[in-house]
Every structure is written in C-alpha cells, then in structure tokens.
C-alpha cells in the first residue's frame, strides 16, 4: 500500500486539508473507490476505513491479482467532518455537485478537478455516498442512466437491489455521472445509515465491494455470493407522504414487506400526544426508503415503496 496526497487545501489557521489516496497493487487502473464528499457521511467514512484495512491484508497475502491497481480515497472533506457540517464548511457548496471541477475555479471546484484527475481512467469507479434527502435506505447500488450504465455489472456487488435513475440537470455535477461520461463504469453504493455507524451494513458494504473486485478478476477473496439483485427504476418507486406535521412515529422500516392498508407510521400531536394521522400503505410492497427524523413536515415523503414486490 502506498499513501499519497491527491490534493491539498491550505487553510489560514486549521491544518492543511490533505486529500489522501491509498494505492494497492500495481499495473493498469482497475478500480477506484471514493468515500465521503459530505461532512455527515460518517458511515461511508467507516466503510472506507474497513475497506482499506481489508485491502491491506489482502495485498499482504498476495491476493491482488497481477497488473491491477486499486485506489481508495477515503474522504474528500475532513474539513466538514471535523466541524460537523454537511457541506463545505466555508461556503456550503456540495463537492458532489462540482465534478468534473475546474482547476482555476472556486475551492470546491478545484477539489473536484484535482480528485477527478486522479480517479479518471479507472475501469471501475465506486463511490460511497448518502442521498440528499436524509433518511434510511435498503442497501443498494445506484447508477444514473447515461447510456453508459451497466446494470449487469452492478448486479455483481451482490446487494439486494440495483436502482437506476434518470440524470437530472443537477445530477450532472456528480462524480458518478462524470465517471460514466469519461468511460469508467461507475457505481454508487448506498448504506442504510449516514451520520451514525451501523456495523452490520458497513460489513455488508465492504463485502459487496470485495465481492465485486473478485468477480472482476482484480483480487482473490472468498466470500458469500450475495444476492441476485432486483432491478428498480427510481421513477417506479411509490412515494408516500404525510398529510400533517408533528412528531413522527415510524412503525415499519426499510426492507420490511408491507400489505395494502397496513399502518406504516403515525404522526403524534407534539403537545397533546394524540395520534393525529396514520400513514397507510397504499399498495403491497417492500419499503425502499424511510424518513428517519423524529419530526415531520406535512407533504414530506416518509416512505418510498417498491410496489407489488415480495420478500
């Protein structure tokens, strides 16, 4: 393993922010794994740390196959992590909307440009990331429909779901989109948690990446075969909203199978304690996304359902 500095942001009073890369193996650019771009993606940071630990062990045992190089960038934004800010702490920009970046541009554009210079050209690009709407997901691999996406490759992670989504204008600054447009097979791996650490799903994410690298002939690693994923288009997910604001009491969670008419959650009057609304399942299906904050505002999406799917 070699550690290198991909880019440095100099600061007047804080330590300089070095974006570090960890290279494993030698040879052609096989796979690149990128961790958090946002300061609240602690689970994603933890997953990267566990992956670096595992890849170090795998490299020591000679299990990185010949002519394959793996680059892991565990975080692009420790400045925000350390002060518990979600976006770039100075100007609130989102690094994952700045790709492919601009070497002469604003600070976060320069971060994106320098990182993109380091991560482009790899055959496979994997990013651990959170969704812009806070909540919990079923573990899945997400990819944008750019015309270059490969659902069959995404299936090789062995996670239960692969989700495809149409690229909106604001998606065109993401690393995933720019990787794909630049010829890299790009995958975003979503774990249920973001700001808190969940060991079980972190292990699942690490295994999914190692399984994928094994199946692509990059490393040798014996692991369970995982799932044959269900493929879901984002547009097909059924959004379920709350009709009132108040204290939110979820009764069902991501991955749960629910039946039409079942009570999924309740909204409680924040002062008098009475249930003022019940969220009812409008269809059979499996919960893909769930709101996870203790308060809820009317019209907010509290669940996304994969309709008519059974466990």
């Amino acid at each position: 393993m070699f550690q290198e500095v991909i880019h440095t942001v100099k600061s007047p009073y804080r330590d300089d922010m070095h974006i570090l890369g960890y290279r494993f193996g030698r040879g052609s650019k096989a796979a690149c794994i990128v961790g958090p771009t946002r300061g609240n993606e602690i689970q994603q940071l933890y997953i990267c740390s566990q992956l670096i630990k595992e890849l170090s062990r795998i490299e020591k045992t000679g299990a990185i196959l010949n002519n394959n190089e793996i680059l892991v960038i565990p975080t692009l934004n420790q400045f925000s992590i350390n002060v518990e800010k979600r976006f770039w702490a100075m100007d609130k920009t989102d690094i994952n909307r700045m790709f492919p970046g601009d070497m002469e541009g604003e600070t976060t554009e320069q971060i994106a440009a320098n990182v993109f210079e380091a991560v482009k050209g790899f055959s496979y690009g994997i990013q651990f990331i959170s969704f812009h709407t806070p909540g919990e997901f079923i573990p899945h691999v997400r990819m944008m429909e750019t015309g270059f996406q490969s659902v069959s490759l995404a299936n090789l992670f062995g996670l239960p779901y692969v989700l495809t989504k149409k690229a909106h204008p604001f998606d065109k600054g993401t690393l995933n989109y720019n990787w794909q447009m630049n010829g890299t097979n790009a995958f975003s791996v979503y774990s249920p948690e973001t700001a808190t650490i969940d060991e079980k799903s972190a292990r699942q994410a690490v295994s999914a990446v190692l399984r994928f690298l094994t199946r692509m002939g990059i490393i040798k690693y014996n692991c369970h075969s995982g799932y044959i994923a269900s493929i879901v288009e984002e547009e097909s997910l059924m959004s379920i909203r709350t009709d009132v604001s108040g204290i939110y009491r979820p009764l069902r969670h991501p991955g749960d199978e629910v039946k039409f008419g079942e009570i999924l959650a309740e909204v409680v009057d924040p002062i008098e304690g009475e249930v003022i609304s019940q969220i009812i399942a409008p269809s059979d299906g499996i919960i893909f996304f769930a709101h996870s904050k203790p308060l809820v505002i009317q019209n907010c999406i509290v669940y996304k359902l994969i309709r008519r799917l059974h466990e």
Partner: peptide, 8 residues
C-alpha cells in the same frame, strides 16, 4: 401556508 411540527 405549510404547517410546521410544533405550534407554528
């Protein structure tokens, strides 16, 4: 108008 969670 949008109702907020607590008395607003």
């Amino acid at each position: 108008s949008v109702g907020l969670p607590v008395l607003e």
